[in-house]
Structure formats: C-alpha cells, structure tokens
Design a protein around this nucleic acid. Structure first.
Lengths: 93, 93
DNA sequence: TTGACATGCAAGATGGCACTTGCCTATTGT
DNA sequence: ACAATAGGCAAGTGCCATCTTGCATGTCAA
C-alpha cells in the first residue's frame, strides 16, 4: 500500500477524489469529462488513468470491472491515518 | 498559504512534524540532531531548513525567534481541511 | 467476424523537487 | 573587536513524477 501522502500531493488527484466522493461509481471516461467540463483541466485519458492508479495503490480508490467498463469508488478509510498520526482537537459536532 | 498536501508529501517533513508534535519548541539544530540520531536520516542543515520553510508556508509550523535561535512549533489546524474536504465517519470517542 | 468502444502497457520528454555547496547576516560571549 | 554560534540566501545538480504518444488487450453489438 503506497503512501497516501504522495497520492494526495497532486491537485488533479484531489479533484478526482472530489468527483468520486460526490457521486459513486464513475468510469475513466466520465472522470475525464468531469475534469474537462467542470474543472477546466484538460488532460489525456492516460494521464487520468495513471492518476487513478496512484489513488488505487494508496487505497483511496477501489475499482470494480463490469464488462468493458471499470467503475471507481472513493474509499476514505486511509485518510484516518492522518488524524491518528497527528491528532488534534475536533469541535464535537 | 501554500497547500498542505505538498507539505505532507515528503517523508522527512512528516518526521519533522512528528518531532514537533512530541516536544514543542525545537530549533533547527535540535531537529537536525533528532533526524540523524533517532531516525537515521542524515541530511545537511540547509535541507532541514528548507523543509521547515515548506512546513511554515503551509501553516503547519509556526516559528518564534529568541536571540539567535528560532523555535519551531507544530500547528495542527491546517490538517482539518482534509477532514472538511473528504469527511468520513469517526468512531465517536 | 468485424468494427467500435473502454481501458491497459510502455517508452520518451519535460518540469519541478530535494539536496548540496558556498557565502552571507545576525546574535552572543569574552 | 573578535570569534563562535544559529540561521538565511542563492545557484547548481540529479532524480523522480507527470504527461504525452503509440500500440495492444479485452468487451460488446451487428
């Protein structure tokens, strides 16, 4: 499991996490479209694919193949390590 | 305020945060020593200084000059952005 | 089977980050 | 004043991450 800090270091990957956190189960093409349309980021399909691979290695994204499509899901659990490592007060909502 | 994600991306900087979170108010030389002695990281003083500058720009470290020494303090507040951006369930302690 | 669709693999170019080196400034003590 | 201490600035180097390009693999529909 690669470190999540490196995965979060890239702005494009953070936007991808935003997209996946919003609506679940998006494909590579859908994410490419979302990046271009809604975030003004225009990159090749492979660039997005490589970003998703980094996120998956870090455990922040899980995938599920259905047919020729691959659906991506946000998995927030690895983020808990950050709070475990540097705990700080939380306003008890 | 530079982004905290880039600041967290480097392993040395994370160890520095660990050191500062443990005991407050350390100087550059003290941190250099801690890196070498307790973590097996042997780097030049400038390397550590540049890491501290990145952490300070990200708001994760605040400094206070006293005489010719500069004391560094861990400031965890910026980390809250991560939880705000991707909220996930926390075991209600 | 043939073509279109969705994705994967691999090699190359570019830019940025981490680290070093050398010199400089500021503070303290004698 | 002088030396020693603590730290800062700036240029240079090497490497890694990101991105692109081109081709390959697997899936579905007609």
């Amino acid at each position: 499991m690669a470190d999540i800090y490196r995965a979060l270091a890239d702005a494009t990957r953070r936007v991808l996490l935003d997209e996946l956190a919003a609506g679940e189960g998006k494909t590579l093409f859908e994410l490419c479209g979302a990046l271009t349309m809604q975030h003004g980021l225009s990159m090749s399909r492979q660039a997005v694919s490589q970003h998703l691979a980094v996120l998956e290695e870090a455990g922040l994204v899980t995938t599920e193949r259905r047919g020729r499509s691959k659906f991506h899901y946000f998995t927030p659990e690895p983020l808990a390590e950050i709070q475990r490592r540097w705990p700080h007060e939380r306003t008890p909502s």
